[in-house]
Nucleic acid binder design. Sequence first.
DNA 1: AACCAGGACACAA
DNA 2: TTGTGTCATGGT
Length: 290
Amino acid sequence: MQNSLPAIRLSAATYDLAVTLNSGQAFRWQHYDSGWHGVIRDRWVCLHQEGDTIVAEAALPAGDWRWLKDYLQIDADLASVLATFPTDDAMRAAVSACRGLRLLRQEPWECLASFICSSTKQIVQIRQIVSMLCERFGDPVKVPAGVAPIFSFPSAARIAAASEPELRECKMGFRAGYLLKTAGVVASGEGWLDELKSLAVPAARERLMELPGVGRKIADCVLLFAYGFLRVFPVDVWVQRALGQLYFPRRTTSSRRLQEFADSHFGPNAGYAQQYLFHYMRVHSGRENR
DNA sequence: AACCAGGACACAA
DNA sequence: TTGTGTCATGGT
């Protein structure tokens, strides 16, 4: 990278950048020799880790870098989060397998739209869909000379103005109708998504689940990854398997039962615990990763 | 080459 | 309330 770019060094002990950016919560980060390239709102940024330091470079003047620190949750106290986890064998194994895994704090619309596209899709495919959405409907973002062009995540208004066939060209299949309708709802009301910040979890979840294509799981992902409700525990197929075989081996447990167990067992940072179990399952499941 | 993927939804029973 | 078929697409 050029040495004239705006840059900052962030103290990041107990932070594993690669694991965090690759753990299936955000879908746009790409690894190059120079580091992880991504877009946060309308800013391009390149990140790489040197031991206990994360080095960030931006393409434009970065102000106080709060937009980045907030996204990375660089000031979160991971040790005190881990201290609230239950001390059973399964959780200990997950924690030791995922050292430095953090939860990001994402922009709500990008998070919501991405997870609407995520249903019964592998993470590689979700990345592909999101990438195509940005290329077709996003705006070009300022990048340093010599860096591949990159685009912002398209606004709800921009997606709402698209047609369903256009969205299907991004290979999202039946999810196109959901995304289009939800974009329409979100774009129609000023601050539709902002209002959720002031609500309690059950009310915010209820509002999200009014949106087409948003059920309990996707709503919970948005509450956790975008709004920072750390108690929320999304149950997907991986976590369901994890709970089943780690906590209820040799018996079939309904998904409602598993959700109830999770909500009562993992404490105030259950969502964090969920991400550890999710990643643990994915790196320790049979055929290598994925 | 089948099987399955960070599900949601309408519709049984 | 819980179970089943359907919806696209492509990775492994």
